[in-house]
């Protein structure tokens, strides 16, 4: 599944790095705890979260996340968006909530990382 298909499935607004939406998503992980992100986000992982602070962006970058989807209509401040843009990390936001997002993407065939 490509990032642009994710955006379509979630009716998401792209916040930055629109030119990178041809990247392929291999796995997906959804959480609101940084410790869990560290353990479960790999390269090629799409991160779904409702946390929008700068720490989440940094954790996603440390773990080489493929992109981040913010749920529930949440959007990070402009500094976070600019940093993500600079680092080549696509961000998007959707009005849908976390359960709905996971369900829609699972239906499209996306799965979590198997340890």
């Amino acid at each position: 599944m490509l990032l642009k298909d994710v955006a379509l499935a979630l009716d998401a607004e792209i916040l930055c790095c629109e030119e990178l939406l041809d990247r392929e998503v291999k796995t997906c992980f959804a959480c609101d705890m940084v410790s869990e992100m560290l353990l479960h986000v790999q390269s090629n992982t799409l991160l779904i979260t409702s946390l929008t602070n700068a720490h989440v962006l940094h954790a996603a970058l440390v773990m080489d996340a493929l992109a981040v989807v913010f749920v529930g209509g949440k959007r990070p401040d402009n500094t976070v968006i600019k940093n993500a843009e600079h680092s080549g990390l696509p961000l998007m936001t959707t009005k849908k909530h976390i359960f709905e997002c996971c369900g829609l993407l699972y239906k499209e065939g996306l799965r979590g990382y198997e340890h």
Binding site: D32, V34, E36, L39, H55, V56
Partner: peptide, 15 residues
């Protein structure tokens, strides 16, 4: 509230 302090820090380090 920032997404930290979930009580996973030391267990993660150990793991």
């Amino acid at each position: 509230e920032m997404g930290f302090g979930a009580g996973m820090g030391l267990p993660n380090i150990k793991q």
